[in-house]
Amino acid sequence: MAGEAEGSKAAELPAELRYMQYEHALEKQYLPAIRALISKDLSEPYSIYVYRYFLYQWGDLCFMALHPEKPLLIGIIICKLETHQSHSPPTLRGYIAMLATSSSYRNRGIATTLVRKAIDAMIERGADEVVLETEENNIPAMKLYERLGFIRSKKLHRYYLNGSSAYRLVLHLKRTVEMTGEGVV
């Protein structure tokens, strides 16, 4: 849609990027690069268990952007999808846990594509809504999500260890009355 059509910078890449859905068999080959790419923008590293928690259970909701020629990881999105209980009624809630594009490849629509792929996969599995948190000053991330249809539902005071606050962003994929809390297996 309009969001992607506007940029032509992506053409600067030598060829089409490869986008790949993750699966457990790829762990040995890709996990170290995934960790490296995500940790770059974190003050505190996540332990390997955090990655495995997501990747082992929801590998199909994780997508990688790979360089067309070199064995290089350029972008990554990691998510989960679960029934959210504290709600009445419960919802099948997708959660975008991590998203990053390698700094020299930013502003070419890579993260947008990754997010779209993840949301598409969630929709296929019957998700009712998608949520995530992002730091209040992370303008690129907020613009990206808001362009796709997320809105800020609340602000979370001093949410991160570095003391900065966050916004919770929410995207409903269905009318509330149509939310069942159950997915397509």
Partner: peptide, 24 residues
């Protein structure tokens, strides 16, 4: 994501070659 700041760390580990990645 919960409980982690996003302030950049200096170490330059991006563009890590994925084929070198898996250690023993």
């Amino acid at each position: 994501m919960s409980g982690n700041g996003f302030d950049a760390i200096s170490q330059d580990i991006a563009n890590l070659d994925i084929n070198d990645g898996a250690r023993d």
